[in-house]
Design a binder for these strands. Sequence first.
RNA 1: GCCAGGGUAGGGUAGUUGGUUAUCCUAGGGGACUGUGGAUCCCCCGACCCGGGUUCGAGUCUCGGCCCUGGCCCCA
Length: 411
Amino acid sequence: MIQKPRGTRDFLPDEMEQRRAVEKRMRDVARCWGYREVCTPEFEELELFTARSGEGIIEEMYVFEDKGGRMMALRPEITAAVQRMYLNEARVTPKPLRWCYFADCFRYERPQKGRYRQFWQFGVELIGADTPVADAEVIMLARDLLQSSGVSFSLHIGHLSFMKALLSDMDVKEQRILMRYLDKKDHEGLKSHLGRAGRAELGSSLLALLECRTLDEVIGITGKIPEYERIEETLGLLDDMDIRYSLDPGIARGLDYYTGMVFEAFADNLGAENQILGGGAYRLAHLFGGDEVPSSGFAIGFDRVMVSLGDSEGETERVVGIVYTPDTRTYALRAARAFREAGLRTETDIMGRSIGAQIAHASKSAQFVAIIGRRERESGTVTLKNLDTGDQRELDLSTAVREVVTSGPRG
RNA sequence: GCCAGGGUAGGGUAGUUGGUUAUCCUAGGGGACUGUGGAUCCCCCGACCCGGGUUCGAGUCUCGGCCCUGGCCCCA
């Protein structure tokens, strides 16, 4: 038999309902913050992604040549595409732009728990704002979104200026290597690299920086940096709004287009793949040939959030089963229409089953059955039976519909 | 790309000193039961991941591959 591609998943209705429920809560939060949804193509010109991350990431992407000989890639993330979209379509839109997305991405990687080749991200981008309160807004929104999902997490906030202050006299390439070591918390690798570069004296201050948990401690190591006041203001806002976070000067976020504030979130109950959110302030537009625009944003690893939430039982939807005899089929279908017009999930027999078998089948998912025979058809009624209580009454069709609508969901 | 552990009906399983028709539960379909449900009973459907090797004979042993799970690497 044909199997699904490696690293992809099928979702049955129960799981889809859980995912949609979480997705809906996130959408509602984003909407309340004024972030409106955008959508970009599933695939883009390969160059959109290599311009930013280098040729190396081709190995980790789904890349193909289309029939016109153009090199394309399934999007491995959304931020670059949104920036391209901004440059293409929305450069003159009043700032700031508050956008969000919920979309699937593709990466050609070794699958494991919480890591798939097709995965979904819920993300936001705030374009054209470059203030302390903009930084704070994005972080507060990140917190609200994760909170709405019900996941248990911790939020870590850093700023690239801390490391850069200590590394300011080194060239950019060297900085990048060292920041990579710091991000990975690879102390030995860091020390030996510094030793080879003849800068062993930096080791202790860099490692001490990783241990800092307050801005004052950081400044004690880096000295007063130009960004100090801005960072203090952002963190102060978060404190005033009772946002719980840890200051983590070790966050480097691998990429060089991040410019200032960076942050990550981790699920409390996941193993190796426990990062469920990452983001920060960045500049990207120049790479795509546009005027620079300060932006910030983040993406939530939606699948990891779902793994963290585990198998929780979704709300049971009210279901009505229409049970009827063969000679009342048309009346039964009209009755079903009336229940559906009231917004109820309504199912009718299409298997030619007996009355008893229809009820038996309906009772697996439904809370109500409307039983219809010749008598009900003649009088324009249905016999509404509550399968939870066993009560049943013959009611006018419209009364029966109202009865179910006002009954409220089960359990 | 690396390491470890796994793959038997849709789901969960038994079967490993190699031996007839591969066990049980559950789910699904039908019936007992054509105007009243989840019980019960009966019937049906349905599996050894793929390929090579050893053997008279492989679910079982062996090799390779694929896939899953966990970890490493990576993680935009």
